[in-house]
């Protein structure tokens, strides 16, 4: 895929819930492959709705969402699941690791759900854990890890199926400063390696330090879309 080709195309998307005001109103956004885009905004601005639409977890009331050539808004439930396995990796604020599975088993999950051969999945998980410097915790349970380590494991899990897109929802929101800095660096490194990232955050500093572009939402509308250099680049 050429660097300039859009990997995400959001066209005139509106999402309303019931009778209330739209969570997203006529949003159009394009993200190129290799970009790291931060979505900023206050609570209720529509950041999570936008992320859910891109992840195929929600459907727009109007408009269309296309990711890596897949028209996401028209997918069935099973199609959405296949789409997420193949195209998307997700990182959450509270890690969302399954506490009764070991670190390795957590990381293996997306590959196992996708039916990747066992040996290949294990090889890939080991490589990712090593790359993200949590390989020494491979047999541990998430509850024994620090917040930063857990988020690294979550990132490893998100990258397991080599997704075209990494979606991160407040990935440092539940971390202390040091761990947050650790995760910020990790995201910047991944982007530097070519990983397309959408980062949803309140934290403008985080946004500007590990992304190349910042999109600001207010009341479901894009009020600002600016490009900048990453901290890594800086």
């Amino acid at each position: 895929m050429a660097a300039t080709e859009p990997v995400i195309e959001i066209r005139e998307v509106t999402r309303t819930y019931g009778e209330g005001p739209p969570a997203l109103a006529d949003v159009t956004l394009s993200v190129r492959a290799g970009e790291a885009v931060a979505v900023l905004g206050p609570s209720g601005s529509g950041k999570s709705t936008l992320l859910n639409l891109v992840a195929g977890l929600d459907r727009p009331t109007a408009g269309g969402v296309t990711v890596d050539g897949v028209r996401v808004d028209g997918l069935s439930e099973a199609g959405s699941a296949r789409y997420r396995r193949a195209k998307v990796g997700m990182v959450f604020q509270f890690f969302n690791l399954l506490d009764d599975l070991t670190v390795t088993d957590n990381v293996l999950l997306p590959a196992q759900l996708a039916g990747l051969p066992r040996a290949e999945a294990r090889r890939r998980a080991a490589g990712l854990l090593e790359h993200l410097r949590v390989d020494r915790h491979a047999g541990a349970y998430p509850g024994t890890l620090s917040g930063g380590e857990r988020q690294r494991v979550a990132v490893a899990r998100a990258l397991m199926n080599r997704p075209a897109l990494l979606l991160a929802d407040e990935p440092t929101g539940a971390l202390d400063t040091a761990s947050g800095e650790d995760v910020r660096k990790l995201l910047a490194e991944l982007n530097a390696e070519g990983q397309t990232i959408i980062l949803v955050t309140h934290d403008r500093v985080l946004a500007e330090s590990c992304t190349t572009r910042t999109v600001e939402l207010v009341d479901g509308r894009i009020v600002r879309d600016t490009e900048h250099a990453t901290a890594v680049a800086r």
Partner: peptide
């Protein structure tokens, strides 16, 4: 929800 977000299909 986590499993579905990771790609668990309805049938699974």
């Amino acid at each position: 929800g986590v499993l579905k977000a990771l790609g668990m299909a309805p049938r699974q």
